[in-house]
Simulated scan of single mutants.
Amino acid sequence: MDRIDARFEIYTLHVLLLYVRLRHENDRGATLAQKLFDHYVSALDNVLRELGVGDVGVGKKMRKLGEALYGRMASYEKALSEGDRDALIVSIARNVYEADDNEHAANLADYALASHQALSRQTMAEIEHAPQWAQING
């Protein structure tokens, strides 16, 4: 099933994975992380406008999306940095699947942790050219 909220969740997860990797790099990485974040927020604004949300509505929806984004950043980054699979599963189940428990959340958490590790092994040049995400088996 293709839903706009599911797209938001997957897009957000990947932006956060890349943002975390870049932010912990040198000054160039921090600059790129900020540019990525700014581009992400701009893209969200554009999507809302393309969906027909008016100027007043865009502001309200962007505030709500911003709150969601910061909440995810806090929970996902903490779990990723600590390698806490269980905490990541709980966060993903709640945010992505809107459930307390979801079998798919474990698969997505494993993918996120593997991608976090894959990104940490890549050089800045490799990431700037084409970041490599974890491979999904099956």
Rank of each mutant, 00 (worst) to 15 (best):
V41G: 00
G83F: 04
R94E: 13
V47Q: 09
L36R: 05
D38E: 15
A130N: 07
H14T: 13
M124H: 06
R94A: 13
N26K: 10
Y70C: 10
I10P: 00
D2M: 10
E9G: 04
A114V: 06
G59F: 05
L69P: 04
L36H: 05
V56G: 01
Y11I: 09
I4D: 03
E50Y: 11
I92D: 00
T12C: 13
I127D: 01
V41T: 15
R49N: 02
L13C: 05
R72S: 00
T31H: 11
M73A: 14
S42C: 00
R121W: 07
R72G: 00
A114P: 06
Y97C: 02
A114K: 15
A112F: 07
V58I: 11
A79M: 07
A43L: 07
D2T: 14
K64I: 03
R7F: 08
D55M: 09
F8T: 05
L80W: 03
G59S: 07
V58N: 03
D100S: 13
N95C: 09
P131I: 06
S120A: 10
Y70N: 14
L119R: 04
N26R: 13
M62P: 08
L13S: 07
R49E: 13
Y111D: 05
S91F: 00
A109N: 04
V41L: 12
